[in-house]
C-alpha cells in the first residue's frame, strides 16, 4: 500500500494544525475552573485538574466586576454598528456594483484603501470630533466611529456579491413591472443574503475587538465595553486575574467562533468575488 504512509502524514499534519489552533482555547477554558493555588504552582500540568475544579472565578466575574455592564455595552454597540453598517453598505455596494464605466470599476479598490488607514493614526482627529459632539465617555462615541471601519469593508465585501448577480435579473424585474427599488428588494437582495450575513458577523466582531477607540474615547468604567473594560478591570497593576480574564475572553470568543464557522463559506465567497473583479 503506497498510499498508506502518505495518508498518515496528511492526517498527522491535520491533527497538528488542529491542536495548534485549539490548544490555546482549551487552555483558556481549563484555566477558568482551576483553583488559584494550583494555577501558580510550578510543575503543575496545565491541562489536568490536580485539585477539584471551581466555579469561583466565573461567579466573581459576573457578580463582583462590571463585566455584565461591559457585555451589555458591547452588545448595544455591536447591534447599533451592525444596523448602521448594513443600512449604509448594502445600498452603497448595490449602486457601485451596477454603476458602469471608470468610476464603478475602480470604486471597490478605492473603498478598500480607506479601510487600510490604521486607527492608530485616526484616533486623534476622531477624538476631537467625539469631544466636540459631546460624546466622549459615552458608548455612542463608538457607535458613531466604528462604522468608519466596518462600512468600507462591508461595502467592499458586498460589492463582490452584487457583481456576481447578473444584471439581467434586475432588468427582467424592471420589465416585469418593478421599480428599481422593488427589483432590488424582491430579486437582487434575496441572492445577496449570504453576503449580508457575512457582513453582520464581520461588523459585529470588529466592533467587539476594536481596542484603541474604546480605550481612548471612554474612560468611565460604566461606559466601557468588553475590549477596553476587561483588561483595565481584571489587571490591577501587575496582578492578573487569569481565570476571570480567560472566562471573559472565551465568553465572547466561542459564540463568535461558531458564527464565523457557520458563515465561513460565504465569507470566503465574498472575498473571492470581491477580489477577483479588482485584479
Amino acid at each position: 500500500m503506497r498510499g498508506y504512509p502518505r495518508k498518515l502524514i496528511f492526517y498527522a499534519a491535520i491533527v497538528l494544525l488542529v491542536l495548534f489552533t485549539t490548544l490555546p482555547v482549551l487552555y483558556a477554558v481549563i484555566t477558568i475552573f482551576k483553583q488559584e493555588s494550583e494555577l501558580y504552582r510550578f510543575g503543575a500540568n496545565p491541562f489536568i485538574y490536580e485539585t477539584a475544579p471551581t466555579l469561583d472565578h466565573l461567579v466573581y466575574l459576573f457578580t463582583s466586576t462590571p463585566f455584565p455592564t461591559f457585555a451589555m455595552n458591547s452588545l448595544v454597540i455591536g447591534l447599533c454598528v451592525v444596523a448602521i453598517t448594513v443600512i449604509l453598505a448594502v445600498p452603497a455596494a448595490y449602486s457601485l456594483a451596477r454603476l458602469t464605466g471608470h468610476w464603478g470599476e475602480h470604486s471597490g479598490m478605492a473603498i478598500f484603501l480607506v479601510y487600510l488607514i490604521p486607527p492608530t493614526l485616526l484616533f486623534i482627529p476622531l477624538f476631537r470630533i467625539v469631544v466636540t459632539l459631546g460624546l466622549a465617555n459615552s458608548i455612542w462615541s463608538l457607535v458613531l466611529v466604528l462604522p468608519t471601519i466596518t462600512i468600507p469593508f462591508c461595502t467592499w465585501l458586498l460589492l463582490g456579491f452584487f457583481r456576481s448577480i447578473p444584471r439581467q435579473l434586475d432588468e427582467a424585474a424592471l420589465l416585469d413591472g418593478c421599480t428599481r427599488f422593488q427589483a432590488f428588494w424582491k430579486v437582487v437582495l434575496p441572492q445577496a443574503l449570504p453576503g449580508i450575513g457575512a457582513c453582520i458577523v464581520f461588523a459585529f466582531s470588529l466592533s467587539l475587538s476594536n481596542y484603541i477607540y474604546a480605550v481612548t474615547f471612554i474612560s468611565e468604567s460604566a461606559s466601557r465595553n468588553i475590549s477596553a473594560g476587561v483588561p483595565t478591570e481584571l489587571i490591577r497593576g501587575d496582578v492578573y486575574f487569569w481565570p476571570s480574564l480567560m472566562a471573559a475572553t472565551t465568553a465572547v470568543a466561542i459564540p463568535l467562533g461558531i458564527a464565523y464557522g457557520l458563515l465561513f463559506d460565504y465569507l470566503v465567497r465574498g472575498f473571492q468575488s470581491a477580489g477577483a473583479k479588482e485584479g
Binding site: P166, L175, D176, P190
Partner: peptide
C-alpha cells in the same frame, strides 16, 4: 420607465429569478 411599456423580454441567459419556484417566476 420599462415597467410601464408593457414590453416583455426573453433574455439570452433567460434571467429566471433563482430564489423563486417556476410558478412564482411566471406569476411575478
Amino acid at each position: 420607465p420599462p415597467r410601464k411599456r408593457n414590453i416583455a423580454m426573453v433574455f439570452q441567459s433567460y434571467a429566471l429569478y433563482p430564489n423563486m419556484t417556476v410558478r412564482d417566476n411566471i406569476l411575478f
